[in-house]
């Protein structure tokens, strides 16, 4: 069993080293590269800590999408002005920070051994009523469904904030036949695996967020290859795309209120089906929102609606 602690030490050392590199590398471009590597090693850490859902999400969202966004915004960020703060200030803040971090590390280690709280035991006991056999999906979409609904609202508010800002990034795609070929291989595969991830979410690691993120990465590939031939997403369908996830979630949540039950209390026998329904709608919306978050602006000039004349009488 000694071998595992060696591996653990290696992984932790690698994670800390990449974090330091991503924070203190001289040039911005290097930092982004180190950050993407950091995201991938963290995905391996989640796998080591028996959290496959998070490994998927970290690889796709943490390293993939966030990395792609950072790379795309590198071109309009001037490199950092090189005037480091006074030597004393830097040493002082580093020392003070170091002491605080050491204190936090000692306190965290004093928390062990961790024992299961009441909610954890309740999750395993009542797993069968949740309608799905994978515990993480059960917690996400049944026991703590309110968190997930608010999280969709967070994504929606970010997407709306971005849509109101300005035009989206121009696709810098030099439609070379090579990238075309790559996209022709990757995009169908990504869409296929998104569907697979969505379906698998009920009984194994996967689910709406990972599937939505995979779809968004397919959109990133399309944006990079600069395919103009694709049908333009109309304003109304863009709005519908953003809405279908949260709206369906709220609607399914409100139904139980009609016969006196609590909000989001799915009938036990229908729970599995309802969760699949919510997840597929959420996947579509998440894919749309994450693509907009990557594009950094609205694809249509007169978002949110085509006005006949701007001063349309109310």
């Amino acid at each position: 069993m000694m071998i595992w602690s060696v591996i653990d030490i290696l992984i932790c050392a690698l994670v800390v080293a990449l974090a330091m590199a991503a924070l203190y590398a001289p040039a911005l471009r290097q930092r982004v590269m180190f950050f993407i590597a950091f995201g991938l090693v963290v995905a391996i850490t989640w796998a080591r800590l028996h959290a496959p859902d998070l490994a998927l999400a970290e690889a796709i969202i943490g390293a993939g999408l966030t990395g792609a966004m950072l790379l795309m915004s590198l071109d309009h960020t001037s490199d950092m002005p090189r005037e480091p703060a006074s030597y004393g200030l830097r040493i002082g803040s580093a020392a003070m920070g170091g002491v605080l971090i050491l204190g936090l590390m000692m306190i965290v280690s004093s928390l062990y051994p961790i024992h299961d709280g009441a909610p954890t035991l309740a999750v395993s006991q009542r797993q069968v009523e949740s309608g799905v056999s994978h515990p993480v999906t059960a917690v996400l979409l049944n026991f703590r469904a309110w968190d997930t609904l608010l999280e969709l609202a967070v994504l929606l508010s970010a997407a709306l904030g971005i849509l109101n800002l300005g035009p989206a990034r121009r696709s810098c795609g030099h439609a070379a036949s090579l990238t075309d070929g790559l996209a022709r291989v990757l995009v169908p595969l990504l869409i296929l695996s998104a569907g697979y991830l969505l379906w698998k979410g009920a009984f194994a690691p996967g689910g709406a967020f990972q599937a939505g993120a995979v779809l968004a990465s397919a959109a990133v590939v399309i944006h990079l290859t600069g395919w103009e031939k694709l049908p333009r997403v109309g304003l109304r369908s863009l709005r519908l795309l953003l809405l279908v996830g949260p709206t369906l979630f709220v609607a399914v949540g409100l139904l139980p209120l009609l016969n006196g039950q609590a909000f989001l209390q799915y009938p036990v026998e229908l729970a599995g089906l309802l969760i699949l329904l919510i997840e597929s709608a959420a996947m579509v919306s998440i894919a749309g929102m994450l693509t907009l978050v990557y594009l950094g602006g609205h694809p249509h000039a007169n978002w949110p609606i085509e006005l006949v004349n701007p001063k349309e009488p109310m």
Partner: peptide, 13 residues
């Protein structure tokens, strides 16, 4: 196979 495809494409670029 996927790694091969993507590394060939990126290498070319």
């Amino acid at each position: 196979i996927l790694v091969l495809v993507s590394s060939a494409a990126t290498g070319q670029l």
